[in-house]
Write a protein that binds this DNA or RNA. Structure first.
Length: 566
RNA sequence: GUGCCCAUAGCUCAGCUGGAUAGAGCAACGGCCUUCUAAGCCGUGUGUCCGGGGUUCGAAUCCCUGUGGGCACGCCA
């Protein structure tokens, strides 16, 4: 497949040696309207050096330029030089590439086997998995898949919130009001109720908070009772969590939560001490970051127990030593921005240059009808309810529109879950999301089901064609506007993946696949595919197959299934 | 108070490291199933791109400033 941007840049440079190839490439753009061509080169930058108006420069260039075979014509429009690619050449080039590469179309090896750690999902044990946790999970999962597709060796780590003072709270609550059998029956909800009850009671009895902290001190000291309760709570909740991951189709290489680093903390504290980074303040131990315009990073409470940051530092050191990552990505909501800046700085102060390879990928918060979701207040929207609700809704629609569908259960799951994931990945990650049942369950327009439907439709046409698709077709039949629009989008896919990786922004792929689905649906409505004319049919099938493959690849990168029928 | 983030159509949002008339979806109205899945397609309309300055040949995009909102700021995670 030709890198058109590169080729055109080289071409232009022959006539404008004043500019670096890189500059020309950066300048080359896709015009806002396809009537203006496939690529455009604005001549403003040259006006000063050439001491001519950009309009005149464009005009002179048009007259000079020697048109290569893959370009149909070059036209000047005011200060712009517009390139119109040869449609037949272009469509053939792209379609042949897609049909050859198939599920690898868009894949590249820029990662060259280098390791990327992705720390994502990380729900708190003993708290329910709500819609807020979904974002880290699906964004992290998409980043994992995107990096993998680009040749990185990915390590997905679920840094479970399974350690800390909160467990002291749950232990206190359990010892006061808990019932063993209830936890066994419904661990997450029962533990949640205990947690909520703790906070209700602690309002009137603040000593409970001290008790909780004491229990956490015991946990870190290896107290048997504390640890066995903790272990019990964790295993029970983890079982529930794994069910959710199963439904979402998300997996991890390691479930090493915060507790995993318990025995690795002392050496971190010693190292910090050895590097003279620690300071005592009001009984607590911290790293002073005043110089860097940040509040201090607390590493030990006055009772000697550790904090979130301490365990994050220990985890980073462990990962660097064991995985030798090129980059370690943390996917959390933006309320943790300061936390990450602080301990990244501590790593840097410890003298590790790889502090620069630690990347925080923040995302916006989820509210429910404008209100904050708070576990403690019990105002949660459970992810499980959202998922099962979406699946039920899909079942209703299937009964209405396609009652003879074969594997209804599986399709309902794929589409319902796909709708929820797609919805979470459609906007820029930094934007807050106001969760609403209506939008989560809407399946029209820019939604997952719309894209999946487009894919299923393409599959259906291919099936009904009763023939295999091959790339040896008459490309003269594929040069109309609507067809070329589809191919143009297909051509952009590899670059979209690169952008998504560079910016850690899966929504670029979500947006892209909607555009492609729209273009394909226009093609589908405009052109009948399984026509009598065998030559035409064969040509159009090549477009359908290519579109189908790229939609599938894009959905794969997002962690969304693409059923063949729905 | 200090720091960071956000502000684009009635609603939800795109708009790449500045570029040609600012775009989608939803909602509303009208059209398209005796031919490949109507979860679809086509058509109709709306904008002080939060205000004010500045940089530039050119600003929704960059800089400054004001307003409105969000988040964070020592023993939670």
């Amino acid at each position: 497949m030709i890198n058109y941007k590169m080729k055109l840049s080289e071409l232009i440079q022959q006539y404008i040696p004043q500019l670096e190839l890189k500059e020309i490439q950066d300048l080359l753009e896709i015009p806002p309207n396809t009537e203006m061509g496939d690529f455009a080169f604005p001549c403003f930058k040259l006006a000063k050096t050439l001491k001519k108006s950009p309009q005149i420069i464009a005009e002179e260039l048009v007259n000079k330029i020697d048109i290569p075979n893959y370009v149909e014509r070059v036209k000047n429009t005011g200060p712009y030089l517009n390139f119109f690619l040869d449609r037949k050449y272009f469509v053939q080039d792209i379609v042949q590439e897609v049909l050859k590469s198939r599920s690898k179309y868009g894949a590249q090896n820029i990662g060259d086997g280098k390791t990327i750690c992705i720390d994502f999902s990380a729900p708190n044990i003993a708290k329910p998995f709500h819609v807020g946790h979904l974002r880290s999970t699906v964004i992290g999962n998409a980043l994992y898949r995107i990096h993998n597709y680009l040749g990185y060796n990915c390590i997905g780590i679920n840094h479970l919130g399974d350690w800390g003072t909160q467990f002291g709270k749950v232990i206190v609550a359990y010892k006061n009001w808990g019932v063993k059998e209830e936890i066994e029956k419904d661990p997450i909800n029962t533990l949640l109720n205990l947690y909520v009850k703790f906070h209700d009671e602690a309002v009137n009895k603040p000593s409970l908070e001290d008790e909780a902290r004491e229990w956490f001190v015991k946990m870190e000291a290896g107290d048997e009772e504390a640890l066995s309760l903790w272990k019990w709570f964790s295993t029970e909740t983890l079982k529930e969590l794994k069910k959710i991951y199963e439904i979402l189709g998300v997996s991890f290489d390691y479930f090493t939560g915060e507790s995993f680093y318990n025995d690795k903390i002392d050496s971190v504290i010693n190292e910090l001490k050895g590097k003279s980074l620690l300071k005592e303040s009001e009984g607590a131990t911290l790293v002073d970051l005043d110089e860097y315009n940040m509040p201090p990073c607390l590493v030990q409470k006055k009772d000697g127990s550790t904090l979130y940051a301490t365990r994050d530092i220990a985890a980073a050191l462990y990962r660097k030593n064991n995985y030798d990552f090129e980059k370690c990505i943390y996917v959390t909501d933006y309320s943790q921005n300061l936390h990450f800046s602080q301990w990244f700085k501590v790593i840097e102060l410890m003298g590790y240059t790889w502090a620069n390879d630690l990347v925080h990928v923040p995302f916006g918060r989820v509210t429910h009808e404008g209100k904050r979701i708070q576990t403690r207040k019990g105002t949660v929207v459970l992810l499980e309810d959202v998922l099962t609700g979406a699946i039920e809704r899909v079942k209703e629609i299937v009964e209405e529109k396609n009652p003879n569908l074969n594997n209804k259960e599986q399709v309902a799951k794929d589409v319902g879950v796909g709708a929820v994931i797609f919805n979470d990945l459609s906007n820029n990650r930094i934007k807050d999301i106001s969760f609403s049942w209506d939008t989560a369950f809407s399946f029209e327009g820019e939604t997952g089901p719309y894209v999946q439907y487009t894919h299923a439709r393409a599959c259906s046409v291919l099936k009904k064609s009763n023939q295999n698709v091959d790339a040896d077709v008459n490309y003269d039949l594929l040069t109309d506007d609507i067809t070329v629009d589809v191919v143009r989008l297909i051509q952009q896919f590899p670059q979209v993946i690169l952008d998504a990786q560079r910016k850690n922004e899966p929504s670029l792929i979500t947006r892209y696949v909607v555009d492609l689905a729209q273009a394909f649906n226009r093609f589908y409505n405009q052109h009948h595919i399984n026509v009598e004319d065998q030559e035409l049919k064969k040509a159009r099938l090549a477009i359908v197959e290519s579109s189908k493959l790229v939609i599938k690849n894009a959905l794969d990168l997002l962690g969304i299934k693409a059923p063949e029928e729905m």
